[in-house]
């Protein structure tokens, strides 16, 4: 199969591309910089529709991972990349015949704990630009798609070389700036990158007209929720960081987040209100339907994932920032 992967330079995009290449697919990665994957790169900007269409000209399917994840980028930029970019990817997929759209469980976040819930409606319309734009993207894909489409919401993807989650946690812990709401008691599920990637490949396999997978978005996680404190401790242990995070009462974290949302000058405040709320409440999901529908199960999981993370830190001799 010929597959176009957008956002191939992200940890997850690269892993998906490599997996597809390994199974014999013809894979093109579309993004601004080099993907670092084993696939062919076709570099360009997701906002450039003709470039996206061109990259997808021979494809049988489009897997759309390209997105802007900066916590405080301009709303216009968020709209352009996450919403219009998705419009472009969908246009390319409409020509090729299949669309796998990567979203996020946070599109359904309403400040309440998620305790073993399934994929709820993507109706987030709060202040977090990323989440709001992803919710908008998901909604219009659902409305406008004319080809078989599977929507996957992987939750907190991490792995060796991850700059988003792991990189930030390790950096902040090293400099003593890491504080967990209420001591990190909230039960949180995450997804090891290889497991998220196999789920996306499974989604591609199920991206056929009439398949159950095309009916509703599917949350993908490792299915091993743990208190945030324990997850962070395992990450820091893998990175060789001995400093423990501090604890901060959840309501105070939320208030600090709100304040920083207003006054922080740069694009990456140390905490946003949205992040504070998300880290204060449980986030784990019922995976039974996802696993049944995709015929997929995670094969790496937390403990092996942490081992691999540790090995990666040891071999790089660095903070894991690639």
């Amino acid at each position: 199969m010929k597959v176009l992967v957008t956002g191939g330079s992200s940890l997850l995009g690269r892993t998906v591309a490599n997996l597809l290449v390994a199974r014999g697919d013809d894979v093109v990665c579309f993004q601004r910089s080099a993907s670092g994957s084993t696939a062919i790169d076709d570099r360009g900007d997701i906002r450039d529709r003709s470039a996206v269409l061109h990259a997808a000209r021979n494809a049988d399917a489009v897997i759309h991972l390209a997105a802007l994840v900066a916590p405080k980028a301009s709303w216009n930029e968020m709209l352009a990349i996450n919403v219009d970019g998705t419009r472009n990817a969908l246009a390319a997929a409409t020509a090729s015949g299949r669309f796998v759209h990567i979203s996020s469980p946070s599109v359904a976040f309403h400040d309440a704990p998620s305790v073993g819930s399934t994929a709820l409606a993507a109706d987030y319309d709060g202040g977090d630009g990323y989440t709001r734009s992803k919710a908008m993207a998901e909604s219009f894909v659902r409305k406008e798609t004319t080809v078989p489409t599977v929507m996957i919401r992987p939750h907190l993807v991490w792995g060796p070389g991850d700059t988003q989650l792991i990189g930030r946690i390790v950096d902040r812990a090293r400099s003593g700036r890491l504080a967990l709401p209420d001591g990190g008691r909230a039960l949180v599920d995450t997804t090891y990158v290889d497991d998220a990637a196999t789920a996306i490949v499974a989604a591609l396999n199920h991206c056929n007209a009439g398949d159950e997978a095309t009916l509703a978005p599917l949350v993908v996680t490792g299915g091993e929720p743990r208190p945030l404190r324990d997850l962070v401790a395992s990450i820091l242990e893998a990175a060789g960081v001995t400093r423990s995070p501090r604890s901060i009462p959840a309501p105070i974290a939320a208030r600090i987040g709100s304040a920083l949302d207003r006054v922080w000058p740069g694009s990456e405040p140390p905490l946003t209100h949205f992040a504070a709320r998300q880290l204060s409440v449980a986030h784990w999901f019922d995976q039974r339907e996802t696993r049944r529908i995709l015929g997929w199960e995670p094969s790496v999981g937390l403990d092996e994932g942490f081992n691999r993370l540790k090995a990666a830190f040891a071999s790089s001799g660095d903070s894991g920032q690639s």
Binding site: P113, V115, P181, D182, R185, A186, L187, P227, A250, P251, S280, V281, A282
Partner: peptide, 8 residues
Amino acid sequence: ASAFLAGR
């Protein structure tokens, strides 16, 4: 235990 682990 559920309430504790759900956070607030």
